[in-house]
Design a binder for these strands. Structure first.
Lengths: 382, 382
DNA sequence: CGTTTGGCCTGAACCGCTTAATGTGTTGGA
DNA sequence: TCCAACACATTAAGCGGTTCAGGCCAAACG
């Protein structure tokens, strides 16, 4: 026995211990297991680190260290454990992990929007796809919740925090004086990345696009094309980015000596069409309209067609958020193009940084660029 | 002491036990806690059922029974426990719950689609919103994963099962001979609800819409309007519902003595436009086209405009899956309308039934109904 | 009046993993 | 040669619930 190597003797010890433990677990335990197997139809017991430990002749602690790539095991023990884990097809129990204080391996996203209007905001789906692309790399999951309003969103956060459900959250549609900001700033809160302008994020980590610049560029572009009456059909006023675009729009039109009109909507094509109709039936109707999303731009195009106003000869149209939709219409919609999927990925990366303890900060994503297509043209007078 | 009520004496016992335990936990434990408080900035310890038990003067077991609405506690003890739990703002730890074999309170959804094409399938977002509406009622969460292909989807399922991550899954985009069906049929698999025709679901629970009827109705409608050359622009061939619609389309056109053409796409507007162009530049071009989704119908409308073909005078267009998009265009798209949000809710309800042990079965959701708008009209010859 | 019965509760094991604290041999230095 | 330092492992105490086998006591029964 004394001649045995350290490992072998550990192995024996281990085996003995295991046998002892199994005995101690007694008939009670066994019968319970058996009963559950019967009732649920011969379940295969799940593979745990204890199984790996037994096979490798080490303790569960060692297995845990090895599987988590932490010091405390030798290189070859680690390799052996990893091999066995692979062979057995072991998957960590996220429940056990998070219960013992480690990561949940889940991030949360709450969408506070009317379910019925959500469907045609292609932004979210693309954004989610982008987030997922990063999560997949670290085998994280995305916990999604669709709620009617901000209060419900806060409730969801509170619940997630209390239940230790997520490691972090992505927060979208920031508002002015957003209640989520102070809440997420509390010392005990969930690590978060806010999507929106730093001025709205109150020092928390934020990822943003320079919408103001994009708006200014668009206005200048239209002005240079001879447009003198430029309008904007905007989204929900309480959203921060709406205000930012509003301000930039007003500012830039004023700077160019124009009077910029703004129509207000809830992002639905219906209201987009309504706002367009209002604008186009005025005596001094605009010769160009910038829409806050693509479906409203599409709706606007429809209204123009209906009213017999030629696009782009008599009216130029620009959509915010380029999408396949924009190239599906005829004429094709000129749009402010932004890669929403990679934006989502960017957000996810920042969230991981944050989860790993990075300090807050604001990160500028690429600025939407104007992509002129068939709905913008030089304006040559009535 | 003997004169005390049972409850009061239990309370004392309990308190003593608690003190004893706290003592046994020793300085080691305390210092650890303290250290973590210091490092993370005075965390409030989370509220557990032990806290509730202590306050109520009962055991944690009793608290568990009370909170889960199970027999084993008297009505007023239950009420007292519930009150204290509310007062303390207790939230169950989902990790602890799932670890001890109970529910995860999470359902999973894997979307095997190219992230870039996902954005403009309004179907999914609406569908998800519908699912969420039911989940919210039971405070379940939705774990979402976007993957590139079926294999990755299977991996996700396997992982979720191994990690006990979800209580059930919703499976979409069924195919002929879908590998997910046998997998989900295995005795040890995850409870699932399949979205698709029962013939594809192999006995598992499925929720479906009668696409064949809807297709037949559309073809008959167009035929009755004088159309004699009806075409279809379909989606991905490997999807089961594509085949079902194909078959119904071919069958019904043949029955009416027409030759029904089918163009194949991947659901993108780009390919929808391409297929339309091919169809419309033939010598005997169709006078009506039925599209498999709304964005392709939109793209088709664009191509017709571009080619100078008048819609609906010379060409009728029908979109599958009505959406706000359909009323944003000019003319408005005639569409097969289906309430996708409530469809999602229906699916979620069936999944809960399944999780609670219901047998498989197939459930017919409402059949899409044709909603004629501006893109369908009587055909009066060339 | 002794004995079931049944309602309420307690105690403690257990779920699978993490992680301090605590051994053990081995080495290297004095 | 002896001891400290070190590398590797083990042990066992949690994490926060669930659940089952009792225990206790009052009511019902024979």
């Amino acid at each position: 026995m004394a001649a045995l190597t350290g490992r072998a003797s550990f192995g024996r010890q281990r085996a003995r211990a295991a046998r002892g433990r199994a005995g101690a677990r007694s008939i009670k335990r066994f019968s319970r297991l058996f009963a559950s197997r019967l009732s649920k139809g011969l379940h295969l017991r799940r593979i745990t680190i204890a199984d790996i430990a037994q096979r490798a002749g080490v303790s569960t602690g060692a297995v845990s260290y090895a599987l988590n790539d932490r010091p405390g095991v030798s290189a070859d023990t680690r390799a052996r454990i990893l091999a066995i884990a692979g062979e057995l097809g072991w998957e960590p129990s996220s429940a056990a992990r998070s219960l013992s204080g480690a990561r949940t391996e889940t991030v949360g996203l709450v969408l506070a929007r009317d379910p019925n209007t959500l469907g045609f905001e292609s932004f979210y789906m693309q954004f989610i796809a982008g987030i997922e692309s990063e999560l997949a790399k670290r085998s994280y999951g995305l916990l999604l919740q669709v709620v009617p309003d901000l209060e419900a969103e806060m409730r969801a956060y509170r619940k997630w925090r209390a239940a230790r459900r997520v490691d972090g959250v992505v927060t979208v549609d920031l508002r002015l004086d957003d209640p989520r900001v102070p809440w997420l700033t509390e010392p005990d809160s969930i690590p978060a990345v806010l999507v929106g302008d730093p001025v709205l994020a109150g020092g928390l980590t934020s990822v943003w696009t320079d919408d103001a610049s994009a708006m200014r560029e668009s206005v200048r572009y239209l002005h240079a094309m001879g447009h003198r009456r430029i309008a904007r059909v905007s989204g929900v006023k309480s959203f921060g980015h709406t205000q930012i675009r509003d301000d930039a729009f007003r500012d830039e039109t004023a700077r160019l000596g124009e009077e910029g009109q703004i129509g207000r909507t809830d992002y639905t094509p219906d209201q987009g069409a309504g706002a367009t109709r209002t604008l186009l039936t005025r005596a001094d109707r605009p010769t160009a309209i910038i829409y806050d999303n693509d479906v409203m731009a599409l709706a606007g195009l429809g209204v123009a067609n209906e009213l017999g106003i030629l696009v782009p000869a008599e009216l130029s149209i620009i959509a915010w958020d380029d999408s396949p939709l924009c190239v599906a219409t005829y004429p094709r919609l000129s749009a402010l193009s932004h890669d929403v999927t990679s934006f989502g990925a960017h957000v996810a990366r920042r969230l991981f940084d944050r989860i790993e303890g990075a300090k807050g900060g604001s990160f500028l994503d690429s600025t939407p660029t104007l992509r002129p297509r068939g709905t913008t043209a030089r304006y040559v007078g009535p």
